[in-house]
């Protein structure tokens, strides 16, 4: 708050009204409802619901399919996060280094930021088209019959590839702006102290990028958990079947298609707790441990 702030009373309330009312109706109300209905069992014919306590949660914990999906989500998230961060870091370091064409490279690499996840998924469907997809052909020449949407690991591969493709630009933008904010004096000092480029990178640049990296780590985990929904939905063409899926996709499938409101809500609550834990982790780690400037 500003020291010389205005003291009018009605105006700030009026200004806050739209934001607060939207948030209460479309944020707190549904969030509370999710928590509440996770303790109830909805009658499939719509005749009310029964309080079942934690049963929805214990059901999930004992459900082999749910555990399998949870595992897939963990592996998927780890792969997407790792590859999109590593690739983006490599490209950002090079784009920061080159003298000629730096701007063009930046543009050419970052434009995919604006492509919607389901559209990225559509591009994947083209690349892996059964009869003529260039990547299907590439796999064929390696002796593997790639079948998108039918073979579990093939579909998972496509999901990871498309999700990484879509996420590299964001990481690239952040890494590049992180690199460009490293003071020139620090770079010059490092140049005198350390002759080898890779030595300079690991001893000076990498630690200086750590805050950006940790921030991006959380962003990428959140992306892999939530924003990949569109990629997955287009790649499996809306038919989950035996295909791999993430926890968010499962919430949608159970609640929206399967009409299992209680179970789906319990899953939502689990995801909420997960996101909250991530955020707390982010604050603790980023705010306290990593302080260079």
């Amino acid at each position: 708050m500003k020291r010389a702030g205005f003291t009018t009373h009605w105006l700030p309330i009026l200004l806050l009204m739209p934001q607060l009312s939207i948030i209460i109706v479309f944020f707190y109300w549904p969030a509370a409802e999710a928590v509440q209905s996770s303790f109830y069992l909805e009658d499939p014919f719509g005749f009310g619901s029964t309080f079942v306590g934690l049963e929805n949660y214990t059901d999930l914990a004992g459900n082999a399919e749910y555990r399998r999906i949870a595992w897939f989500t963990v592996i998927f998230t780890a792969l997407v996060t790792f590859f999109s961060l590593a690739l983006a870091l490599l490209l950002a370091v090079k784009a920061d280094k080159v003298i000629r064409g730096a701007r063009s490279y930046r543009t050419l690499i970052m434009w995919v930021y604006a492509v919607a996840p389901p559209v990225a998924g559509f591009v994947g469907v083209m690349l892996f088209n059964q009869s003529w997809g260039p990547l299907t052909r590439a796999f064929q020449s390696l002796g593997h019959d790639f079948v998108l949407g039918v073979n579990y690991s093939d579909t998972a591969f496509a999901m990871v590839l498309v999700s990484v493709w879509k996420q590299v630009p964001v990481n690239f933008i952040f890494f590049l702006s992180g690199l460009q904010s490293i003071p020139k004096s620090v770079r010059e000092a490092a140049l005198i102290d350390n002759r080898s480029a890779s030595g300079r990178f690991w001893d000076v640049t990498f630690p200086l990028l750590a805050p950006t990296g940790f921030f991006l780590l959380i962003i990428n985990i959140t992306y892999a958990l939530f924003d990949t929904f569109g990629v997955i939905d287009t790649l499996v063409k809306g038919e989950p079947g035996n295909n791999p899926m993430t926890l968010v996709y499962k919430v949608y499938v159970d609640g929206f298609r399967g009409n299992d409101l209680g179970g789906s809500s319990a899953q939502s609550v689990i995801l909420m707790v997960l996101v909250l834990a991530l955020t707390v982790f982010q604050f603790r780690l980023v705010e306290r441990r990593i302080h260079y400037t």
Partner: peptide, 20 residues
């Protein structure tokens, strides 16, 4: 009240939001 909303994406409360 306002900034708590930064913590939870729409995806985790998608069904109740739909019902509302």
């Amino acid at each position: 009240v306002i900034f708590t909303t930064l913590l939870l994406p729409l995806e985790v409360r998608i069904l109740p939001s739909y019902e509302i």
